[in-house]
Design a protein around this nucleic acid. Structure first.
Lengths: 148, 148
DNA sequence: ATTAATTTTGATAATCACTATCATTATTAA
DNA sequence: TTAATAATGATAGTGATTATCAAAATTAAT
């Protein structure tokens, strides 16, 4: 997924839903597409505050919701009761996450086996599958070292 | 995992942590071990209220937390921002969940493939694995029918 | 059994992440 | 330029959960 693809996806969603363009929303979009890995609403809010001290947290929540609805972002909970977001790279295959219970570091992994398994479950249980999440919790190599 | 195993696990945890036994906690424990499938704190609370109209919701939250800490229960979020609990059957292999986005129904599934994949990821990423969650979201057969 | 130390409890305030409301401001189409 | 409508920031409200605290229950030691 290239940046211009995302930009199109963003603009199309706004047009298709009879929304108006806005400076704030564009700023949030630009900030988000530059992010690598996972982030929270608060991450974005504190980023934006640096250059736009008047922006409200509600606008950030609203825009992130819009970006999830438009398929630009995916939301995770990673076992916690709050949202973590990442760019929804529709070109790449879906991926799982290794989550360190100590430092919170997240490693992504790809697996064809999982992909196949999801399809098998779809057939076996007559489900119409939308998405899946595969999360492995443990201690990352770094934290294992510092534990000793 | 038999009932008496769970009871031992519960009693051991209380002893090992210098806690006192209590009628309320026992009532909650008895209620929970009878449950099949997944439940929320509120499910337990409203159950208990029927026979014990004075019980406080805080006690239910506290006890469920204790049961998770002792390994008797496992917590899930199923993509929502609240807790769902189930008995941690340590005899049976870990399992994944199919979650219906329409009616919320949850189907469990077992898969050796997943088990192997987790072990592979453990090696590949040098993780010390604690647990994992595999959640597939979609529409269940029943809801597919009623959609038409 | 009585006491003393400690834990548990229910009520409820506080917290956290998030959503709803609403008056004001911005955008857009005519 | 205007009229209609959407976006915004402030902030109140919400839902799930945790923290606090005085009173009650439990336990161990007398």
């Amino acid at each position: 997924m290239t940046l211009s693809n995302l930009k199109n996806q963003y603009n199309d969603y706004i047009k298709l839903n009879g929304l108006k363009s806005s400076k704030r929303r564009d700023l949030i979009f630009e900030n988000i597409v530059k992010k690598i890995g996972h982030f929270t609403t608060d991450d974005i809010y504190s980023d934006l505050l640096k250059t736009d001290p008047v922006i409200g947290i509600a606008t950030v929540y609203r825009t992130i919701r819009l970006l999830v609805d438009s398929g630009i972002l995916v939301e995770h909970t990673f076992g916690e009761k709050r949202g973590f977001f990442e760019i929804n790279n529709q070109q790449a295959p879906e991926h799982g996450h290794l989550i360190c219970l100590k430092c919170g570091h997240i490693t992504e992994f790809y697996s064809k086996t999982i992909e196949k398994n999801v399809k098998f479950m779809q057939k076996q249980h007559n489900y119409k599958i939308n998405s899946y999440k595969f999360e492995i919790f443990g201690i990352c190599p770094k934290c294992q070292k510092s534990e000793k």
